[in-house]
C-alpha cells in the first residue's frame, strides 16, 4: 500500500519532469515509416501510423478519427508513389497548407530513393491499386532506410531545431545497428544468391535487388484480378524449367492459388511480412528483416540436399 503510493508519487514526479510540449506528434501512413520515425525520433516524438499494424495499406479506408490525427500532426510522413493515395483526401479535408505537398509538415519518404520499375502510365488508379510511377515497396530494401531516415531527421530538426544533436545521435545509433544486422542478413542469404522465386504480388523488387534474388513471376500480376488458367499454366511450366525454389506469399491474400502452384512445383509457400507488424515477430523495422530473412533462409535451406 505504502510502496504503491510512493510509486504513484514518483511516477507523477517523473511525468512532470518530462516536458510534455517537447514531444513532437508525427503521423505516418504506414507502420514501416512509423518504425523508422520512432528509430530516429526516439522519445522526442509520439508517432502513430494511420494504417494499423496488420492491415493491408493498399486496401485501407480512412475513418473519421484519422482526420483529427492528421490535423494534430506536427509532421506527416507518407510512402508516396501512389501507394497511400488516400492520405491526400484526408489532408485536403483538414485544409492545412503545412500538411500539403511542399508544406513544412509534409514528408514524402520516397524522395531520393533509387526507384525500380518506372511505369509508362503514371496514372494513380484510385479503386484498384495500380502502382504509380514506380514500384512503391522501397522500404523492403534496408539500404533505403538510410535515405528515408535522413529525410525524417531533416524534417524533425526543422520542426525542433533545439533537438538537432539528439536526433542525429539517434539516427547514427540506428544506422550502426542496421549495418551490423545488414551484415548478418547478407551472410544468411548469401548461399541463396540467384535463387528463383515466384511471388504473389510484385512487392519484392527492392528486397530481391538487395539480397540478389530472382523473382521470376507473379501469381496475381494485377492486384485484385484472379489469375487466368493460361497464366497459371505458363507460370508452372516456366517455374519448372528455371527450377523455382519457393513461393513468396504475403498476408492479406487468400492462399489457394499460391498453395496450388507450390504443390505443382513441389516447393514451399513462404509467408513473408510486407510491413512492420503484419506478422507476429515483426514489431519494428529491424525485426521485420530479421523475420523475413530467417524465414526465407529456413524455407530455402530445408530443401538443400
Amino acid at each position: 500500500m505504502r510502496a504503491g503510493l510512493l510509486g504513484l508519487v514518483m511516477a507523477a514526479a517523473l511525468a512532470a519532469a518530462t516536458p510534455v510540449w517537447a514531444t513532437t506528434r508525427v503521423v505516418t501512413t504506414t507502420t514501416d515509416l512509423a518504425a523508422l520515425v520512432a528509430a530516429v525520433g526516439g522519445d522526442l516524438v509520439a508517432v502513430e501510423s494511420i494504417v494499423p499494424a496488420g492491415v493491408d495499406p493498399e486496401a485501407f479506408e480512412p475513418r473519421p478519427g484519422d482526420l483529427a490525427k492528421v490535423r494534430q500532426a506536427a509532421l506527416l510522413v507518407r510512402v508516396g508513389l501512389g501507394y497511400d493515395y488516400w492520405v491526400d483526401a484526408i489532408v485536403n479535408q483538414t485544409g492545412e497548407r503545412r500538411l500539403m505537398r511542399a508544406g513544412e509538415s509534409y514528408l514524402d519518404a520516397s524522395a531520393g530513393i533509387p526507384l525500380l520499375e518506372i511505369r509508362g502510365q503514371s496514372v494513380i488508379n484510385e479503386g484498384g491499386h495500380a502502382h504509380g510511377v514506380a514500384n512503391p515497396h522501397y522500404w523492403l530494401d534496408p539500404e533505403n532506410a538510410i535515405i528515408v531516415t535522413a529525410g525524417i531527421a531533416e524534417a524533425l530538426v526543422r520542426i525542433a531545431p533545439g533537438e538537432r544533436d539528439r536526433v542525429l545521435a539517434n539516427r547514427q545509433r540506428f544506422l550502426a545497428e542496421l549495418a551490423t544486422r545488414r551484415a548478418r542478413w547478407d551472410r544468411t542469404l548469401a548461399p541463396f544468391a540467384g535463387v528463383k522465386l515466384i511471388a504473389y504480388h510484385n512487392s519484392w523488387p527492392y528486397f530481391a535487388r538487395r539480397f540478389r534474388l530472382d523473382v521470376t513471376g507473379f501469381i496475381e500480376p494485377r492486384a485484385g484480378v484472379a489469375p487466368s488458367p493460361a497464366h497459371l499454366a505458363q507460370l508452372i511450366s516456366a517455374g519448372r524449367k528455371v527450377q523455382v525454389r519457393a513461393i513468396l506469399h504475403e498476408p492479406y491474400e487468400p492462399e489457394d492459388a499460391a498453395r496450388f502452384v507450390a504443390q505443382k512445383l513441389d516447393v514451399p509457400v513462404v509467408r513473408l511480412a510486407i510491413s512492420v507488424g503484419s506478422l507476429a515477430g515483426t514489431h519494428d523495422y529491424l525485426a521485420l528483416f530479421d523475420y523475413n530473412v530467417a524465414t526465407l533462409a529456413k524455407a530455402l535451406g530445408a530443401r538443400r540436399p
Partner: peptide, 20 residues
C-alpha cells in the same frame, strides 16, 4: 480483425481454378 480480410476476399472472388 484484419486477419479475416483474406477470407472475405475469397468469398467474393472464389478460386474454382485451384480447387483440389
Amino acid at each position: 480483425l484484419p486477419q479475416g480480410a483474406e477470407h472475405v476476399k475469397k468469398i467474393l472472388g472464389g478460386s474454382i481454378l485451384t480447387v483440389d
